[in-house]
Design a protein around this nucleic acid. Structure first.
Lengths: 336, 336
DNA sequence: GTGAAAGCGCTAACAG
DNA sequence: CTGTTAGCGCTTTCAC
């Protein structure tokens, strides 16, 4: 690689010329296809190394694979999603596949643009993390690329699903609060959440409403925007409004962190429970009781499903992962 | 879009046929190129909409642009990096460019594979967030794609640089500790960090050593792995070893969080200061004093630099962002 | 076991 | 202002 080396990347043509074989031959070596003599493989491999050859993903894409798995993520600030990515990454180690992430922009049809961008880039498999996208759009996407829906509670025979047991998890959370003696429990969740929609938060809300109703208790839903800041403001407003709640069940840990901040600022003494058990929840300064979801295992499983689809499976698979309670200092018996 | 619609994506050919024009004409409309009549533009646009046409990124890549900006990230668990992404995303709003993220796998040559993956995918611009990659590799990459190095302290005329003022930031941190009366200050940083290397942590270490030396104080460097868990273990070991330090300056907030956990578990009373001021640092349960870096502005600026390069700039640019101290409860005068 | 050739969807230079 | 055409780098039959 002397100073005179052209900046241009080596192509399969260059490799073929160098090795004294045809382009097709090089392609076969590349794809480990049938019908290559050892001596040829050797020469070609040497030529590739000498030229620092790397196949063009774009050119490959025009014929088939890109060896790329795309993950659409709703919110990088939520550490639960990075657990998923970690699991997915480790499951892909040793394969020729590469993960790329597309963060969803905020706004309506959350995640649709990011999903589209990934499809446009012809990923070989797509993991969509609970996008607020209608089922038709997902079916359409699934028609052109293997798709794993993350956290989606509905079922389709076109795409696979990896989900947490949101109903069971919410039940654990509420049971924990009931056991401590709470009866006036608020639920902090995303705005205008529909308990019958197929989203994780919908399931948690549904179970919350059911559990409260089953005990003849009055539900109190605090609708907020996503993110700790919005949760902070919403919680403050509830306190300023003079809420009688003694505990708040946050739909995920980010929201719980915001709520805790508001409690600290106002001196209000409510118990808080979150969902996902992100790393910070167990920090001694925080001590947030949370419902754990095995994000790493879920991410790894999603990747496996994709690989199976790529390998030919055509039936839909759906796997639900159990949740478990991590009790900590943020939940305690009510004061009064 | 009836049930008989083929799953195949519409191509430029289909659009041309539908609109009764040539492929070239469609391409021109697509690229907003010179020489299209209003009536033609209208017909073509209508045809694209009817067919739900989306250009193939792969095919475009073979001729030039992919309208993709790639960001290589070392660690998703570190919330500072998500600040960068947030800034980059917002700066790209309204442009046809899409961001994709490639998380670096852990291991040696951290980030090199992710960078390569992005180059292979022919991104139009590349932001590399402090990869531990030698300068030659970066120069080589920069020869084929506009590159912004994030946090890199060296300079190249091939790529642009966005960096924080690590020396100034470290100086703020140490001055703060000195002002409080600390003299035995440990520095918690990555393993075998070389104070003369061009990485952000190297600069912080260099300034730490200089500041201690300037006051005739003995430096105490705690080398750890990246991540809060490793920082926890390292801090515990230092405490068990009976360190006489009264304060620890962590090279970033993640490490500081781990250190705080260890202090809490052992009951040791050391002051802790971090770097980056991620969101959790200001949480009342944490109250971590930290050196703030304007991650969002830095990310946005990096994207602008890339866009300028794409538009034709060929001179190198280097911009350094000031750091500022955020004093909180985690730093206080030494006990003895 | 190996090579020739077609074509994937698009852009850009050129001719009309 | 519009259409024709030549590739971009690769995979994949299909002959040899």
């Amino acid at each position: 690689m002397g100073p005179g080396t052209p900046a241009r990347r080596a192509t399969i043509e260059d490799v073929a010329a160098r090795a004294g074989v045809s382009r097709a031959a090089v392609s076969k070596v590349l794809r480990d296809a049938y019908g290559v003599s050892d001596s040829m493989r050797e020469r070609v491999t040497a030529a590739m190394a000498e030229l620092n050859y790397r196949p063009s993903i774009a050119a490959r894409a025009m014929r088939g694979r890109t060896y790329t798995i795309g993950i659409e993520l709703p919110d990088l600030a939520n550490q639960f999603f990075t657990r998923i990515v970690r699991g997915a990454t480790s499951a892909l180690e040793g394969t020729p596949y590469q993960i790329i992430l597309a963060p969803a922009e905020t706004g309506s049809r959350l995640g649709y643009r990011a999903l589209e961008a990934l499809v446009d880039r012809q990923v070989d498999g797509l993991i969509a993390v609970s996008p607020r996208v209608d089922e038709d759009a997902l079916e359409r996407i699934a028609a052109s690329v293997p798709l794993v829906m993350f956290g989606r509670l509905d079922t389709s025979d076109r795409y696979d699903v990896v989900a947490g047991d949101d109903l069971g998890g919410a039940r654990l959370a509420l049971q924990h609060l009931f056991d401590l003696g709470h009866t006036r429990i608020a639920h902090l969740t995303l705005p205008r959440e529909d308990p019958d929609a197929p989203y994780p938060h919908s399931g948690r809300l549904r179970e919350y409403l059911a559990a409260m109703a089953a005990r003849g208790l009055e539900p109190e839903v605090w609708g907020t925007q996503d993110g700790a800041d919005a949760a902070y403001r919403t919680t403050r407003e509830a306190i300023d409004r003079g809420t009688r709640a003694t505990a708040v069940f946050a739909a995920h840990d980010e929201l719980a962190f915001g709520a805790m901040r508001a409690l600290s600022d106002t001196g209000a003494d409510l118990s808080v429970i979150g969902y996902d058990d992100v790393a910070m929840a167990s920090h001694p300064g925080i001590g947030l009781t949370s419902v754990d979801q095995p994000g790493e295992r879920m991410g790894a499983r999603a990747v496996e499903m994709l690989l199976e689809r790529i390998a030919g499976r055509s039936t839909a698979v759906r796997e639900v992962f159990e949740a478990s309670l991590k009790p900590r200092a943020s939940t305690r018996p009510p004061r009064d």
